[in-house]
Design a protein around this nucleic acid. Structure first.
Lengths: 152, 152
DNA sequence: CCCTAAACGAGACACTGTCTCAATAAAATG
DNA sequence: CATTTTATTGAGACAGTGTCTCGTTTAGGG
């Protein structure tokens, strides 16, 4: 996933601000630092990476604030969780949403993305028939990425 | 997923014993207790649930042994991990393997299963073309299960 | 300028899993 | 059978990730 364009950052900022306003929350320095770092990060990142980045700032931001802000960004629809079966949660941006799936290398942990296809609809209709209310889905392949296959 | 039939338990036991022999490991009381509890459990279970179950036995089994045995059972192909984006790992049985996917309720955490279809092959061929060596895949829907939809 | 409520940081705590190390049991050997 | 070697184990320390509490700070609103 390429880094967000300026106008996309703008849009995300708007989204976040709108959310804060609706939820009666203020755009405080702490929240803003977390937001900025999240926008700088691209691809998939772990919460703890963000903790390290945020704590490099002059104004110290506590873990508590960072985790709190991540939840807010999630609620605002700026980032989303992705489950990789590791011990810690990963996030990715939502902007420019072309729904995609993930292939994760079990060796180097790199993640490849590939677009979601309408084939998934068949599953969707099965689940709907069974009364399951779908909020989202993700197809997750695991294996060896091209580089790690070579290295063998 | 229904509980394993007797002959399936037999087969799994054989698999485990074969693995132990090949790996020069012995079928010790500790390992056996873990195996028995794993076979009793069905559906998806977390490591910590198993810890609790195993520790009810007269012969105390330590966390270390349980986690070690779980790894062995995984290596033996008796159980497999499933990533649900929660904080702890889940496992499920491998016996009577009809490959299936999961729909998890974000409210009650129950998991529905549905069969894997050949539609996935399209993704497989895309990834292969890109040089990714696939070891496995899982489609993961999340949302509200029928019961939780009702309860709203 | 004061009052109140929101936001914050520090650190305790909880959970899950790993690791080490000394004690034990079991097998192999003489 | 005694001794040596090796595998296995349990206890608990440790680590990583995330949550929670609580006293303090900050910032508006009056």
């Amino acid at each position: 996933m390429r880094p967000p364009r300026k106008d996309q950052i703008q849009a995300e900022q708007q989204k976040f601000h709108d959310y804060l306003e609706k939820a009666n929350l203020q755009l405080t320095p702490g929240r803003n630092i977390v937001f900025q770092e999240v926008m700088k990060a691209h691809g998939h990142f772990a919460a703890e990476e963000l903790v390290k980045l945020c704590q490099k700032h002059a104004r110290r931001v506590s873990r508590a604030t960072i985790y709190r802000s991540l939840r807010e960004l999630r609620a605002a629809g700026v980032i989303r969780e992705t489950a990789f079966g590791e011990k810690h949660q990963h996030y990715e941006h939502v902007y420019d949403e072309k729904l995609h799936h993930h292939a994760r290398c079990i060796q180097c942990h790199r993640v490849m993305e590939f677009p979601c296809m309408e084939e998934d609809e068949k599953y969707v209709s099965i689940l709907k028939k069974r009364g399951f209310h779908i909020l989202g889905h993700e197809l997750h392949f695991y294996g060896l990425c091209p580089d790690c296959v070579m290295r063998r």
